[in-house]
Design a protein around this nucleic acid. Structure first.
Lengths: 224, 224
DNA sequence: CCGCTAGGTCACAAAATCGTGACGATCGCG
DNA sequence: CGCGATCGTCACGATTTTGTGACCTAGCGG
């Protein structure tokens, strides 16, 4: 586990939280200032940052903004002020959650887990898009619970598309990613493979729900 | 926009939230019971679910668990009880956030955005100019939330113009950038393409807001 | 107000792009 | 070897997209 980065200037609160989070099974590094935290983020990338808003020097919200420019790692803002406006400003600054002190360690832990769970579900072994479930670990695809047999090439192509949901991938890219680079660029290879996948996973292959053709550019996987 | 699914049994609270969220620019569908909500999730997949915990019939936490079995879409639990244990149980059930009523609409909106932002941070680089939103990754263009279909050449031309906002680009430059260099310089090609784009994205094509003609020089994309 | 020119509009044929089915080559395995 | 599964390629039709030229309109200087 890469660990939690805790930033809190009050030594007793910091010690308390660090102890509680460690007890919950996390590995915690803590600092008292935003500058130190930013250095830490740059040097070793933490799994998640818990950031007090009232800090000496750069305040927490500003630290949050600066971290956002570096990375998209999860940030929880922690504050004694539960003002609505503060919450909105904090979240707009790019925080994932905004927790008001004092906070029960169990609650903080649950919130941390919720965020990490959400983050992992994007890169987990198993993703689902409506009726379509793709198990990257087992290399299995199923539709409405029924397992679909895809050939290796079809599976590689589908996984490549799914790795970039919503993005248009052009044929050249797909040829390189799924096949080796020894293929001519203007073949109907990708098209034929897409068509074979559609025949298997699309309810109505002529009106696809998952793999969309973007004429002139390529294909886009986007969940229904 | 896929829309928010709101589940809340108190009619006045439901109406209030629905109105507030709609005002924030979301499209909202609401139900009073968990059963209806589950049906809705199965039928049309909402973008995010906001779920009251105290519901007649199946309670919110249980609805949350059942949705989780179907899909990994984001869920915010909403409740009058802010008990620490409730929060932990709710988050453990798979919710992404847990908000205690009464909640300021702005705060709820900020939390919704935080979750959606996290979900979409899959590097879709979007730019927006007023009502016009251009997604370079998905190669989608939308106006007032409605997706606009642009042909490949139109899209390439628009992207080229947008790459240099405020700059006047002459026809020769655009011909080279968007088309290959095998075209004669004095054709109506660029004009015709600009006109086709205007017909699709300009509210009043004769009085363009986005793509301005600079007589004698070329065209300039400048946001309204 | 006139005439000129740059730009707007339109229709249509040519060209590009995709989907699809067929076919043969190749591979893996019993 | 024989067989089925898989894969790459091709040809062709359907559809969309695009370039072009003719003609129209608006702006501008005189």
């Amino acid at each position: 586990m890469a660990g939690i980065l805790l930033v809190e200037d009050d030594p007793s609160v910091r010690a308390g939280l660090e102890l509680a989070l460690t007890r919950q099974g996390h590995s915690v590094t803590s600092y008292a200032t935003g500058e130190e935290a930013l250095d830490h983020v740059r040097a070793r990338r933490p799994e998640i940052v818990i950031l007090d808003v009232m800090l000496p020097g750069i305040d927490g919200v500003e630290v949050c903004r600066r971290i956002r420019k570096l990375d998209s790692l999860p940030i929880i803002l922690l504050t004694a002020r539960g003002d609505d406006l503060d919450v909105v400003v904090g979240l707009e600054a790019g925080a994932d959650d905004y927790v008001v002190k004092p906070v029960e360690p169990r609650v903080l832990d649950a919130r941390i887990r919720a965020i990490l769970r959400r983050l992992e579900s994007a890169s987990s072994d198993r993703v689902s898009f409506g009726d379509l479930v793709i198990d990257r670990g087992a290399l299995k695809v199923s539709l409405k619970g029924r397992e679909i047999h895809l050939t290796p090439t079809e599976l590689r192509l589908l996984l490549e598309l799914v790795r970039h949901p919503g993005q248009v991938l052009n044929r050249r890219y797909l040829l390189r990613a799924v096949w080796d680079h020894t293929h001519v660029a203007d073949s109907r290879l990708v098209d034929a493979c897409v068509q074979r996948i559609r025949a298997k996973i699309e309810p109505v292959p002529a009106d696809p729900v998952f793999i969309h053709t973007v004429r002139g550019f390529g294909y886009r996987f986007s969940p229904p």
